[in-house]
Nucleic acid binder design. Structure first.
Length: 870
RNA sequence: GCAGACGUGGCGAAAUCGGUAUACGCAAAGCACUUAAAAUGCUUCGAUCAUUGAUCAUGCGGGUUCAAGUCCCGCCGUCUGCACCA
């Protein structure tokens, strides 16, 4: 005990080196013990680790270390989601090659992660931009193509005419490209698609079996897949003025409202619209206008309902004298249903808006509750979408909407129109095929060649990998591959004439859809080693941010099914357990319009109010709301700074304490101080006691003070293990605090205690070291050594608790009178109902309260409570 | 608009199956140690009234129950996801 304080910066480095030298965390695929695969979503190498990463990896590490102590063969790997736009942006701004930028960031972040003391098998590390990895991904592409899982088709996209690239909807702000500020156009592009929509039903059904997933994520995926059941109804054209078809197909989930129809609306890119436009200048102008608006959410919300009345009319399926006008409308989407709808303004808000704009009739067909005045629709402009009974609907009158649906279906499916039934049942999904083409350099090249003679030719497996060219420049916008003539020019594998390479690369979501499988055997020549995959998958516990609830997790579920089909994986669901952690938040500070970093200010607390001022000048600063840590709001705290002043154990402990892991945690300076004080407290207690305890044999003792300590030790050990198992880290930590509070008085007066208590304390401390081990691994090792331990905690088995000590024989149960607690009863745990009842009635406070009266009823719940009703 | 979650002290929160509401931590106050401060240790800490103690408290209003933070019905508020999806 030469030093007074624990110095994490020296100690933590020491233990990290020892773990590495002994290869403690290197995992062997052939280990006979039961497997456990824990994985945190791998990071994008943006430059530095942020607090969100620390929280994510701290949680995963607690589970990995705990399961290892519990005797599992644990796989806990790390990699890098390394392709993507930011590397190219950096290339444009700083004249640095994306590869160089990416690998430099990886090197920095790897060291940062190592300094947190994570129990990771670094020998399995890879980045998705490693040739080794994207080579295998190209192999998968070929296999999937052979199986018919990939198709080429055109689709409408947001096109940035300045940056020459496709933009995702999120990248369109107020109709303009987020980087260039250019007015975004709608373009039809031919792209590669993965046929995820073929798996809609399967992906939906699979959700039911994911019991260890948060219900929230399952609901989100459920809605995203968006299954709906309805009818496709064919409406006969009134006059034969279309060359190609005799009817318009419409998808509807409300066939019951068919007598409320007042118009038919076609999508702007519907084939019939295109046909009509050929002979109609005005329609051409209308279509052009529609294409100029983008598909971003903000625009859609405010967009006016616009329509164009065509010459066409269709006949009502149940009344050939009833002509319904056909419009082209901007709100109808080609990619959903049939790209045409029938409008029933009275019972659909969107149709009502349209009807009011174009003075179309509004025909109510579902009864309102108490108001039969239907002029209301044009006044209130609110459609009636609730249930009721059918009215003004001829043979449907009086039916429920459900019965009317069936009646319409039954009648129409018998009617033949042009050789087909006039209606068919149709199940429609919202989920669309996954377009994976990106007009970018820094991604996995799509292994395809275009030949003028042979058409689309796949790159033969033997010619893989298609490598990204090194010599590229980013001095003009667009995709450098596109203008790299030398790289593009290639001999056709079929006819050997000159052909050109596909210059699009794959969406980075493809990279992250199978990396978890690659970790099981990153050395394999094939994408996976089927034996290794069968051993390790599914992942027992996957941890990451809720922001990936839909895309990444849905794509991965799809990809696993696909990889099963092409025999690279044996299962369908990759993630058995999923946990979505909350974000790391921080207060914001601003000086006028400018955000101010927390490192530049000082908080002063006076009379219960908090004020902030600039460190440099003392200028007052406004304290703003608590928000997610982000560079733009400058409310970030750099983990490196915290590591330097407090150490890894403190930062891990703070991240896990207080807030439940699924909820947001608010970072605060006082919070991290509190965690640091606890680290010092443990170290101090162990040091104070070490001299007295080092030679004492740890054993459980069953008497008096020593007995209480032993009992607490065994109970806490059990409770902490249960909480970690349930990922309730905050509760585990509370248990540990409570336990330390129990044993610390005895530890501080250790020199005056008897041998029995010392022995119990010796064991209590040993348990404590194991309990803090998963969260504060360095401190645990250090304390273990101070007490004379030889083996590494990281490599030791979790101690067993004694059930004789966790089950008490004397228990205290609360006693209520008329539902209010009035006292307690101490009795043996084996006491039966009759004995408890007798004991309760002789208690002083019960006798006084009853005052000679006989209770009406006594409710006794063994081990829990007694309630006397008078 | 549709779907889902949540609402407990000054703050982060706990309460397994309906069974002692506020564990544990933070902040605050007081005391001890100290020349002093920091650190550390001890004590207090939901509200109101009060002498022991009592009454009221888990967003609001009802209900079920011996017993409700927990279950049911109706509101209010906050957050998240999706959205011209027919």
């Amino acid at each position: 005990m030469t030093t007074k304080y624990y110095n994490p910066s020296i100690t933590e480095k020491k233990w990290q080196a020892i773990w590495e030298e002994n290869a403690i965390f290197k995992t062997n695929n052939n280990d006979p013990r039961k497997k456990y695969y824990v994985l945190e979503m791998f990071p994008y190498p943006s430059g530095r680790i942020h607090m969100g990463h620390v929280r994510n990896y701290a949680m995963g590490d607690v589970i990995a270390r705990f399961k290892r102590a519990k005797g599992y063969n644990v796989l806990h790997p790390m990699g890098w989601d390394a392709f993507g736009m930011p590397a190219e942006n950096a290339a444009m701004q700083n004249k640095v090659h994306p590869r160089e930028w990416t690998y430099r960031n990886i090197a920095i972040m790897r060291e940062q992660l190592k300094s947190i003391g994570l129990s990771i098998d670094w020998s399995r590390e890879f980045a998705t931009c490693d040739v080794d990895y994207y080579h295998r991904q190209q192999m998968l592409f070929l296999d999937m193509y052979e199986e018919g899982l990939i198709i080429r088709k055109t689709s409408k996209v947001n096109w940035d005419p300045i940056d020459h690239t496709v933009l995702a909807n999120e990248q369109v702000v107020d109709g303009r490209g987020w980087r260039s500020g250019a007015q975004v156009e709608q373009r039809e592009l031919t792209q590669w698609f993965l046929r995820i929509s073929d798996y809609s039903e399967e992906l939906l059904k699979g959700l039911n079996f994911l019991e260890k997933w948060p219900a929230k994520v399952r609901t989100m995926q459920h809605n995203w897949i968006g299954k709906s059941e309805g009818l496709i109804i064919r409406w006969q054209l009134a006059n034969k003025n279309s060359e190609s078809c005799a009817y318009i197909e419409v998808y509807t989930t409300r066939p019951d409202t068919i007598f409320g129809v007042s118009f038919i609306a076609l999508a702007v890119d519907h084939p019939l619209t295109k046909e009509l436009a050929r002979a109609d200048k005005d329609l051409q102008i209308f279509i052009k206008e529609c294409y100029q608006s983008d598909t971003s959410i903000a625009t859609l919300e405010t967009a006016e309902k616009k329509g164009f009345k065509t010459e066409l009319n269709v006949l009502h399926p149940f009344d050939s004298n009833w002509k319904v006008p056909v419009y082209v409308a901007n709100f109808v989407v080609m990619s959903y249903g049939t790209g045409a709808v029938f409008g029933c303004p009275a019972h659909d808000q969107r149709d009502l808006d349209f009807a009011n704009a174009y003075s179309l009739p509004i025909r109510p067909v579902i009864s309102l509750k108490n108001n039969e005045d239907y002029t209301i629709f044009s006044i209130t402009k609110v459609a009636h979408t609730k249930d009721g009974t059918l009215i003004h609907s001829r043979f449907l009158d009086g039916m429920t909407p459900q019965d009317a649906f069936k009646e319409v279906e039954n009648r129409l499916k018998k009617n033949m129109l042009d050789g087909r039934p006039q209606a068919e049942k149709h199940i429609q999904f919202r989920l669309r095929d996954w377009g994976i083409s990106r007009q970018r350099y820094w991604g996995c090249p799509i292994p395809v060649i275009y030949c003028d003679d042979c058409g689309i030719v796949l790159v033969p497996k033997i010619d893989l990998p298609v490598l990204l060219p090194e010599n590229v420049n980013f001095d003009q916008p667009g995709n450098p591959l596109e203008r790299h003539e030398k790289w593009k020019k290639v001999k056709c594998p079929k006819c050997s004439r000159f052909a050109r390479r596909e210059t699009d690369t794959m969406d980075t979501f493809v990279d992250s859809s199978w990396y978890y499988a690659r970790f099981t055997a990153p050395w394999a020549k094939e994408p996976t080693d089927i034996e290794a995959v069968s051993h390790w998958l599914p992942i027992d516990q996957y941890i990451g941010g809720i922001e990936h609830a839909i895309l990444h997790l849905l794509y991965s579920r799809f990809f696993t099914r696909v990889m099963k089909k092409i025999t690279h994986i044996h299962i369908e669901e990759p993630f058995k357990g999923l946990f979505t952690q909350g974000m790391v938040m921080h207060e914001t500070y601003r000086d006028g319009q400018n955000w101010v970093s927390p490192s530049k200010i000082r908080i002063v607390e006076k009379n219960g109010s908090r004020t902030a001022m600039l460190l440099s000048s003392g200028k007052p600063i406004t304290i703003g709301s608590i928000e997610k840590m982000s560079k733009s709001k400058k409310n970030v705290v750099d983990p490196d700074d915290i590591l330097a002043s407090y150490g890894a154990d403190t930062i891990r402990w703070f991240m896990l304490s207080d807030s439940p892991p699924e909820r947001d945690v608010i970072w605060s300076a006082v919070g991290i101080e509190g965690a640091y004080r606890f680290v010092q407290r443990i170290w101090r207690l162990v040091n104070v006691a070490a001299g007295e305890l080092r030679d004492i044999a740890p054993q459980a003792v069953y008497s008096n003070a020593a007995g209480e300590i032993s009992r607490a030790a065994h109970c806490t050990l059990k409770a902490v293990a249960d909480d970690i198992e349930k990922l309730a880290f905050n509760r585990a930590i509370a248990q540990i605090y409570e336990f330390v509070n129990i044993i610390s008085p005895s530890l501080q007066s250790i020199s005056q205690t008897d041998e029995g208590t010392k022995s119990a304390l010796r064991q209590a401390l040993e348990f404590l070291i194991f309990m803090i081990g998963p969260m504060m691994p360095h401190l645990a090792e250090e304390c273990h050594v101070i007490l004379g331990g030889k083996k590494l905690i990281a490599n030791s088995a979790w101690p067993a608790f004694d059930t004789a000590l966790t089950n008490r024989d004397g228990i205290t149960i609360p006693v209520q009178i008329n539902g209010k607690k009035r006292g307690e009863l101490i009795i043996t745990s084996s006491a039966n109902q009759a004995e408890i009842g007798k004991a309760v009635l002789s208690l002083d406070f019960v006798v006084t309260r009853l005052n000679g009266k006989k209770p009406k009823k006594i409710i006794i719940v063994p081990h829990r409570i007694v309630n006397i009703v008078t």
